[in-house]
Amino acid sequence: MEDYFIVDGHCDSITHYVNQERTLSLSSEGGQWDLPRARSVDVALQFLAAFIESQSKPAMATWRGLELIEGVHRFVEANSAQAFLVQGKSDLERIPDPLKIGVLLSVEGGEILGENLFMVDVIFRLGVRALGLTWNQRNALADGVGEDTHSRLTKLGQEVVKRMNQLGMLIDVSHLNEEGFWHVLNLSEYPIAATHSCAYALCPHPRNLTDRQLRALARQKGIVGVNFYPRFLKESGLVTRQEVVRHICHIAEVAGAETVGFGSDFDGIDETPEGLEDVRDYAYLLEDLTKVGFSTKEIRQILGGNFMRVLTDVLK
């Protein structure tokens, strides 16, 4: 895709690597994401999420999170000719690299911190540059969307947000309940991200963002990465790639084209839209965005520029 590059704000592929199910170095291994296929469609920066599964919570959450973080480092080292770790502004300046994909290490679930603020510094030293405060459940920081509450962040959660701002870490509010979303937005001095969510107006799922939330993200110069999970895209019926385009168009209309990007959730979803089965199909999304009338500038923003802007604002 000449003159374009892609930033994907979320995939769960590192779990498959750590579990020794795939090396992520060969397209023949299956799955939805790997280095060769990602490079073939000009993915320049991939967020690799360390997702802490429910069975590890709470007692083994820190252990599992650290295992996955170490797995990202092993993966990057094993593929040093094709990948490099993004930890600061100087690394962003390398993107797009003609030979290597940038990898940004994220953690999906504040459970990795236990109940200890110092753990934010620990995972930062280990290279983590984005943290989702919750998954769907409650933890020591806040409540996820799976909890039927109207709770804001805990005192610890507030301290975590402030420390992440100080260190230069991206705060991810995907999976956070709505009250927590507003609390984070009021607390954070820097743009935040919903790295893998969609528009509630088009599909009223708790994981999606309302128009009010989208407009607030825009005012704070944040971003939402559109998720490819069919159940977040459409309530029922056949889900095709066009539903992803529909959510992109809606978010752009409500909050501006500068507020939307991609957060595929590849290898973390058990089904995909028709025509968007794996990372190679990003090539078709580029064509789709052109057909619905986005300008060249807007397409560059959506494909990767918006995430790059947010990361430039946040990382040190």
Rank of each mutant, 00 (worst) to 15 (best):
V245A: 09
A130R: 12
A252S: 15
V239G: 07
E67C: 11
R22N: 00
S174I: 04
I123C: 03
L66Y: 12
I171S: 10
A255G: 00
Q137S: 15
H73Y: 06
V254T: 09
H16C: 05
R64L: 13
H247I: 02
K155F: 11
G157R: 03
S236D: 14
V314R: 07
Q82K: 13
P204H: 08
G65N: 03
A38C: 01
Q166H: 08
V245I: 10
W63D: 15
V254M: 06
F124A: 14
G293N: 10
L289F: 00
A83F: 00
N136A: 12
W33E: 04
A83M: 01
A218N: 02
P191M: 04
E235L: 08
A252K: 06
L285F: 08
V239K: 09
D12E: 05
T149I: 02
L214S: 11
T290D: 14
T134M: 06
R163F: 07
F262A: 10
K297M: 11
V244G: 06
K162Y: 12
G9T: 01
V260Q: 02
K57R: 15
N19F: 14
S25M: 00
L303W: 12
T240G: 05
G102K: 00
E253W: 06
I123G: 03
L85W: 08
F228E: 05
R219S: 14
A283Y: 05
V184G: 05
R219M: 14
T195H: 08
V107L: 01
L170H: 04
I123H: 02
T15H: 12
V292A: 09
D288A: 10
L104S: 02
L66H: 13
L156R: 01
I192K: 02
M60H: 13
R246C: 07
L131Q: 02
A44I: 01
G225Q: 05
Q20E: 15
R94L: 05
G305E: 04
A81L: 14
E253F: 13
D42E: 12
Q213G: 08
L104N: 00
A283L: 09
Y190R: 15
Y229N: 12
R300C: 11
